[in-house]
Design a protein around this nucleic acid. Structure first.
Lengths: 208, 208
DNA sequence: ACTGTATTTCAACACTTGTTGATGTCAACA
DNA sequence: TGTTGACATCAACAAGTGTTGAAATACAGT
């Protein structure tokens, strides 16, 4: 399946010129499914219905293709970044909504999955993921949070959201993957808000 | 580096018989660092200071070696399992302590890292991680939790702990990795308790 | 019609991969 | 002392890897 049944070489007549995008999509899928090493040039080419050499033609080499795969639309980062504007009282809710919505878009989720998967598989790439998790949010957001250990607060909140996305979209834990987004939002947002602005390191008061 | 400088074949005199363990340790390290595909038989053999064929001798093939790498001491599972015995009021605290302590043991962390890393890199292996996250805890623990959506409660709690361990030990996010365990416990345990037994899907009451 | 350029496949390369069979060496036991 | 079996390396295999140079076809501009 997905094989290119040996069309003869040369530019095809009436070519739609969208092979480049097809390659990128296939690459995202393969990288996300099998990691950097596991996804081979040939498997990607086959999935895209294209010869291997075409990948090299467009992206230079495997690293280039991988890099192209990881490019996130700047709009995505802005969406999370923008969640910090507004009243601090509902910051957790806005941030949770912004971040988890990101992963609901199938196209974007492909990029994100590819990043995460490969970051875990290749030690060198973890740097990139770390950057994407932290550096995306400059330090000036720290000033919005309570004075005690704002660094830890932000890390706990983002790490929690990241973990939820992982369980829902990559691990596909049934309890997380089969729920509608609003249910998840309602459950998680208060926790994020708690990490960002609530009392840290003390048990929460009984609320029964 | 790590090369075997061509000792001649045959059983060495006074062999300590611990080559098998050395191979396992090296394999865990390599698998955790580079994933299943990324870690090669030869790189593992080199890291263990041993010929490639010796891996096959002990573990059959790469899959066998990988499987041997993932074997967790049953004591580990029991430790988490045992945290569910006791008053429900401090269940979150006990579970958080039990789970995060697991990852503090360097030897065990190697196994766990290898499982996670490879699970993300190889789609087929995700099943195994899913099992290790969920099936380790039989359903009878669900009866301990409040009636509304105990499934989601348990998933959120365990997924959160898993995420924290990931950020601390694999991603090594500074804010999580550089803290002492008690600080982390104090911050996370209340949240876990909240997910397990607190009100779900409602914002928490103000506690300033 | 001619010329350049972008697109696409073909064919082969040098290298690495996991695996296997043969061989050598030591330790234990009759 | 001889035999047996576990330990360990060597050498080579077929298959798969990323990459590269060449050629074939179509399109755009003159």
């Amino acid at each position: 399946m997905g094989e290119k049944d040996s069309e003869r070489p040369g530019r095809p007549p009436g070519g739609d010129g969208r092979n480049r995008d097809r390659i990128l999509a296939a690459a995202r899928h393969e990288f996300a499914a099998k990691g950097f090493r596991g996804a081979t040039m040939r498997s990607i080419a086959a999935a895209a219905g294209v010869d291997v050499a075409l990948l090299a033609h467009y992206f230079g080499n495997k690293d280039g293709l991988f890099a192209a795969t990881l490019q996130l639309p700047g709009q995505a980062v802005q969406q999370v970044r923008g969640a910090f504007d507004g009243p601090v009282g509902e910051l957790g809710e806005r941030l949770t909504l912004a971040y988890l919505s990101l992963w609901e878009d199938p196209g974007l989720a492909g990029s994100l999955s590819a990043t995460v998967t490969s970051a875990f598989a290749h030690e060198g790439a973890r740097e990139q993921l770390r950057a994407q998790l932290t550096a995306a949010l400059p330090e000036d957001v720290l000033s919005l949070l309570p004075g005690d250990d704002p660094d830890l607060r932000l890390a706990l909140a983002l790490n929690h959201l990241f973990g939820i996305a992982l369980g829902r979209h990559l691990l596909r834990l049934p309890a997380l993957a089969d729920r509608d987004l609003p249910v998840l939002l309602a459950a998680v947002a208060p926790t994020v808000q708690h990490y960002l602005a609530g009392p840290l390191g003390r048990p929460e008061p009984a609320t029964t």
